[in-house]
């Protein structure tokens, strides 16, 4: 019984067990005054954390192995013209809303063009908005449309 009472006291006055959402990332419209970011600073993520995906367009060789292993089919390929080697090739875009963060594409990539970063702030209203698709700018620039 006594241990229970001491537990209750701990729960009243002790440290919180979960991390508080860092104010730095709160939407500006909510708290302009607190946007400095000193209140509840972000907690560093452990090494190897599987967060936001990044893709290096220039490193990619268009082998398509990542397409084969992706469990959620979050990747899509599109044709481009490789100007260096002067032959048609392929590049990919990632739909972040579909990604399951399994890291399988990172492991399978022969040139290390895909990486998972410790960034975890990914919430968005638009499932297929521009900032939810990795590599969309490059696609708009380099995609070879049919008949071109």
């Amino acid at each position: 019984m006594l241990s229970t009472v001491s537990r209750i006291m701990q729960q009243f006055f002790g440290r919180r067990s979960t991390n508080v959402f860092p104010v730095k990332y709160a939407p500006e419209s909510v708290i302009d005054a607190l946007a400095g970011g000193d209140i509840h600073p972000p907690i560093s993520m452990p090494e190897g954390y599987r967060g936001k995906l990044s893709y290096d367009f220039d490193k990619c060789i268009g082998c398509g192995m990542c397409l084969k292993v992706c469990p959620a089919k979050a990747l899509e390929d599109y044709p481009i013209m490789d100007t260096e080697k002067n032959r048609p090739s392929k590049r990919i875009v990632f739909y972040r809303g579909k990604c399951t963060y399994c890291e399988e594409c990172v492991k399978v990539c022969p040139v290390g063009a895909i990486k998972l970063n410790p960034d975890f702030m990914m919430a968005n209203y638009e499932k297929y908005g521009d900032d939810q698709i990795e590599g969309i700018e490059k696609r708009r620039e380099f995609e070879v449309k049919e008949g071109q």
Binding site: R7, Q11, G48, Y49
Partner: peptide
């Protein structure tokens, strides 16, 4: 009280799993 206690001490193993695998679940 017990609910709070067990979920509080559970955080430690979740953190450990995050360090091992890079995610708290899955």
């Amino acid at each position: 009280t017990l609910f709070y206690t067990t979920w509080d001490i559970r955080e430690k193993v979740m953190d450990c799993l995050e360090v091992i695998s890079g995610n708290r679940v899955n």
